[in-house]
Amino acid sequence: MCFFYEQHPMKTRASIRRMVYASLFGAATAAGAFIMIPLPPVPITLQTLILYLAAALLGGRLGALSQIIYLIIGIMGFPVFAGGKGGLGVLMGPTGGYLIGFVAGAYVLGKLLEIPKAPQLPWMICAMGVGTLIIYLFGVAQLILVARLSLSKAIMVGVLPFLIGDAVKVTAASLAALKIKKHIRLSP
């Protein structure tokens, strides 16, 4: 029994589909990291927006798996992290905490959205907000530990500049997820 999906000796259609969904959303996260949209104070990338959608549409486990795939591609050295970075060094560097937080954030956010049968907009925004908080938590922790910043300084450089952008992304992702869920029933 695997953590992410059940294993059958002969793979069923659903399990192949789950695999493909997770890897394509991992790829989409990587592609999203390249798309910059200018927004004061710091430009935003679509990376976490696609993370929210992956977790909301695929659920906690598959959402987290898609982010693990994204991280593995990055660790292998492909320049898929924000700003064209790649390699294990980025993950272990000062800003690597956010990337590790992606997996945890996607898992929790997906799980939260699995609780109600048909999540509405407020619940959607709350769950994505919690996911974002978890990403910040990991990010700030690593900033403190690796870059040796104090807590207040870490929050100043690692959370405050991104608040507006992330609020926009959470709202956009909630609206998009609701719209997509209305039209498409995902089978996994």
Partner: peptide
């Protein structure tokens, strides 16, 4: 398999975006 799928589709999705 998933890693190679993802690697294969990053440029495609980028173009799509």
């Amino acid at each position: 398999m998933m890693i190679s799928l993802a690697l294969r589709f990053v440029p495609t999705l980028l173009e799509e975006i």
